[in-house]
Each structure stands twice: as C-alpha cells, then as structure tokens.
Simulated assay, not measured.
Amino acid sequence: MRDKTKLRNDWTKQEIEEIYNLPLLELIYKAATVHREWHNAEEVQMSTLLSIKTGGCPEDCSYCGQAARYQTNIKVQALLPTEQVIAHAQKAKDNGSSRFCMAAAWREVRNNRDFDRVIDMVKGVNELGMEVCCTLGMLTEEQAIRLQEAGLYAYNHNLDTSEQYYEEIISTRTFDNRINTINNVRKAGITVCSGGIIGLGETHGDRISMLLTLSNMPKHPESVPINALARVEGTPLQDNEKTNTWEMVRMIATARIIMPSSMVRLSAGRIEMTEFEQGWCFMAGANSIFTGERETLLVTPNPGVSEDMQMLQNLGLKPMKGQSEKATEQFETWNANL
C-alpha cells in the first residue's frame, strides 16, 4: 500500500491550476486515489442544516434570498424556540445525520439574549451526541470561545469566492472580515468549515484562487463545502446559468487532492443534479452531503432522506460510522427491501 499523500500548506497557484486543468477523467482518478488513502470511500457523512433564524439580513450577498434588500419569496422568521431546534436535531439524528448545523441570517453575532439562546441550543444538540455546527456570521474570538465552551464542534464561514472577485458579489463586508472570523474560530479551538460557491459569474482563475486560500491556511478547514449557485428569484444572480456538473466535479476533485484530510461536502445545488451526476461527485472525492426532510437547505430545495438513502444504496455507499442505532437500522431496512 502506498504512503498517504502528504498534507501541504505551501501550494502555488500554478500547481493548483495544473491539477484543476488535468483531463477530467485523469483528475477524477487522481482524486479518487487520494480519497482512498485518507478516507473510507464507502462512507458518506450525513449532515442536516436548519435555518434557526431566517431572512431580514442587512448584508447584500448577491446570491442570497435572505438579504432584506431583495424582494424574494422567503418568509422572515425570528429565532426558533430552543426546544423546537433540539427536536429537529433529534429527528435528524434518527434519520442518519451525525452533524447538525444551525444557521442564522445575521451579519454578525451580538452579545444579547438571542446569542444566549444559541448557546443553549449548542449545549442541547451536543448532549445528543452529534457534531454541532453553527453559521452565524462574523464573530469575535471571545464569542467563539463561548461557543466552544458550550460544545460547538464546527463553525461554517465560507469564503464564497476569490479575494479578487469578492467585492463583485458582496460590498457590505470584506474578504478580510471572512478570514478574521475563521482565525477567531481557530484560536478558540473550534474546527473550521469553509468553502465556496461556483456559478457566481467568476472565472476559473477565481475558483483556483479560492482553493489556494483554503489550502494554504495554517491548517486546512476540516470541512470544505462546494456549492453550486442556487438561483433565487429576486436576487441579482437569479438569471445566471445553471452550474455545469462537470465543473462541480472538477472543483471537488481539485479540493480533494490539495486538501486530502478534509471532508469535502457536496452542498447546495444537489436538487438540480441527477443521481448519476452526484455519483461522479462522490467518485471525485466528496464524502459528505446535507440531507433532511424534503424541505429546504436553508431556503433552497434539497433532496429528502428517502431519496438520499436510496441513492446511497444504489451507489454502494453507506452513512458514516458513528450514526445512531436507529439510523443504522433504517439503512439496513433499505438494503433488505431491494
């Protein structure tokens, strides 16, 4: 058995560009090889994402239907009751998820009663034995420490795109604001979940630059979500073209090769992908998805649990070990019903 591909934090843009531009099947082969060195290729981590506070955000992210300045069909919702969030987490665990992510449409965390309630939510989900993740906007090191002490496992703060293209997509914060929050998360001892979105109108060079930033962090993000733009009516990017699946595969494969130990998450955009297309993403090194009831991934459609279980079974994959007993039984039932 060959030695594992070594972790590197000194990639050059040219090196990543050469990997990214490999002939597609050669790229997938290399990524699949690296994936098998570092991970069990038969396992996929099931994660559930819940919007605990929806809409009314003061930011102007061009892709997001939760920005207050855009006229979308997204209904503004105040912070959910703690008990309701815990109930959602328990249901997610029963359905096979090992990670539960809570998202609030805030520009930044404020030291107020709502943050106190989020702390209680983190404690409650942590007590269920799940990995707890939050995405709440910008936060200080002190706030990150509070979350860590409550049991937070991961914090999501996507770069979205390259530093050069960032201001074309968002003007209400800077790329450095993103990096500062990620640094605060690291200092608090919380794992980092950070990736980006393709289909924003960026160039291939922008995608490579974003991957360069992620892969040259002092420690690679433990989780790297690769999202395809979910086109939301009423946002500036509503008329962008659907993201080509082969471009998603190319991004996933490149991320897998340059950040071999990370979980690469096939995130937004799955609802527009066939099972065959998702299968190529898994082959290229994706080993995590967001799943749940056929409701929403935040505020955009997402496949349901039954569809995802059927897909995993068809592809010979299974939920990552460490799931609840009930989830394991459920998956075995799916196999028995073949």
Rank of each mutant, 00 (worst) to 15 (best):
G292C: 11
T82G: 03
D94T: 06
T203N: 01
E332I: 07
L229F: 07
R207Y: 04
N126F: 10
L50Y: 10
K30E: 12
I28P: 01
K242P: 12
L159M: 13
N184I: 15
I119P: 06
L312Y: 12
K318F: 11
K318V: 08
T191S: 14
W246T: 11
T161W: 00
I169N: 02
E83G: 08
R250H: 05
G56K: 07
P260E: 03
P58Y: 04
E127T: 10
Y29W: 10
Q77F: 00
G65I: 01
F115E: 03
R186Y: 15
K4Y: 01
R256F: 07
P236Q: 12
N183W: 11
L317H: 02
L315D: 02
E149P: 00
D60H: 13
Q330S: 08
M309Q: 11
L80Q: 14
I145M: 10
Y155F: 15
W106G: 04
E108V: 06
E142Y: 06
R36F: 01
L79G: 01
I119A: 09
L237P: 02
I170R: 05
K321R: 08
G205C: 02
L80P: 02
G234K: 11
P319G: 06
T33W: 12
R178C: 13
F282Y: 12
T191N: 08
D60Q: 14
A105G: 03
Y20A: 11
T296Y: 00
L147T: 04
E131Q: 15
Q14D: 14
R173P: 00
D120N: 15
Q14C: 05
L312F: 13
S215W: 03
H157R: 09
I226F: 08
D120L: 14
N158V: 07
E26S: 15
Q71A: 09
N240E: 12
T243W: 07
S262Q: 11
L50M: 15
E149Y: 01
R256H: 10
I28C: 04
H204L: 10
G196H: 03
S288A: 14
G124Q: 13
A105Q: 06
F175G: 11
R186N: 14
Y165E: 04
T300E: 03
M273Y: 06
T243F: 06
P218N: 08
N216H: 05
W106R: 13
A268R: 02
N216Y: 06
T33Q: 05
N156R: 09
V44G: 03
I52G: 06
D176P: 01
C57V: 07
M248D: 06
R250L: 08
N111Q: 15
W246L: 15
R117E: 14
I208D: 04
A31P: 04
E233A: 12
L211E: 02
I86W: 11
P225K: 13
C61Y: 02
T245H: 12
L25Q: 13
P301T: 13
I190M: 10
D206G: 01
K91Q: 11
V249A: 05
T245C: 08
